[in-house]
Computed example of a mutant assay.
Amino acid sequence: MNIILITGAGSGIGYETAVSLKAQGHKIYGGIRSQQAADKLRQNGIIPIKLDVTNEIECKQAVEFIIENEKRLDVLINNAGYGLFGAVEDIEISEAMYQLDVNLFGMARLIQMVLPFMRGQQGGRIINISSVGGRVVSYMGAWYHASKYAVEAFSDALRMEVSDFGIDVILIEPGGTKTNWWETAVKNMKLRSTGGVYEKAAEKAADGMMKLYSSTLMSKPAVISKAIVKAVHAKKPKARYIVGFGSRSLLFLHFILPVRWYDWLAKHSI
């Protein structure tokens, strides 16, 4: 049995992963921000723990609570995140900073806190939920992709640093996944562009995203959670797990197409 902390466990990929790992006999602490999410986790035998990854005090309290109760932490799954979409000119820097705080610095904050304990127990596993969007970009997604590209680079560097201590660092790179984040992303992209020079382009991009993410093409969260579970159990885990709708196809096209051809495809495919 592993002691596992999962951030963003209240819904989507995080929730599916927590439930799956609990069913396989692990003890799961699920980071959540709402009471409703806490009740849902408890019903599945998962221990909810209040955890906003942008709040250093809550991060510290969560890690200390687990160590105090379990004396160890075997796996940290950094799943919390969201997508900020819109033209660079339309997005306030304060919004962009929050995107990076959630998707990158929140993850880094927890990693810094758990590493001393993992080193002390001479082993551990850190699983960072990135995205295919950490290796290719979509139209009007500059800040979201900047955060996920940073997660990729951060994880690659960290993997080298901690390998001598028996700690594995793993990236999960989902493609299109049917979770509820896109509804808020689309709505906010339209609002930010209203009355501006990017209004028509943003509306078209938002409508394309809405059509795509409300279709049956997107992968279900359970598809991604299976890859995470596999990474938890693997004796020698891979550095990257590419999974979900369109992931491998996008990476292949990005590799073989000239840059401007891929730019045109990304801009006009939604």
Rank of each mutant, 00 (worst) to 15 (best):
S130R: 00
T54N: 07
V151T: 02
T179Y: 08
V243K: 07
V63E: 06
L171F: 06
F154W: 10
M140C: 11
H268Y: 15
F117E: 14
L115Q: 07
S20L: 15
L212I: 10
R192N: 12
A62Y: 04
V63L: 13
L115K: 05
H254V: 00
T194C: 04
V19E: 14
V162W: 05
K71N: 14
K211R: 12
P116A: 02
K220L: 13
R72M: 07
Y198D: 04
N55L: 07
K236D: 05
I172R: 08
T54I: 13
V197M: 09
K267R: 14
V53A: 12
S11N: 14
D74W: 11
V114C: 12
F245Q: 15
V162Q: 03
R109I: 10
M218A: 12
S131Y: 00
V232G: 09
E56W: 06
G25S: 11
I224S: 11
N79H: 06
P116G: 10
M160W: 07
T194K: 15
L158D: 08
I91M: 11
G12W: 00
I228A: 01
A185K: 08
E58Q: 15
K226S: 14
A23E: 13
L115N: 08
R192P: 08
N188F: 09
N103F: 14
K267A: 15
I67C: 07
S94V: 09
T177F: 03
Y149D: 09
V169P: 11
V162H: 05
A234Q: 11
W181C: 02
A37C: 00
R192F: 03
L100P: 00
H145T: 02
S163N: 11
L100M: 14
P174W: 02
G31N: 01
K220Q: 15
V88K: 09
V19M: 02
I6M: 05
I46L: 06
I91N: 12
L21P: 09
I49A: 02
H26F: 09
S225T: 08
E95P: 05
K40W: 06
A227T: 00
I49V: 09
K190S: 01
P221H: 00
H254Y: 13
S138T: 11
N103M: 06
N69Y: 09
D164P: 01
G83H: 07
S219T: 06
E16C: 10
P237F: 00
M118F: 08
A153C: 11
K178P: 06
K71Y: 06
P174G: 11
I47H: 08
A80T: 02
P237S: 00
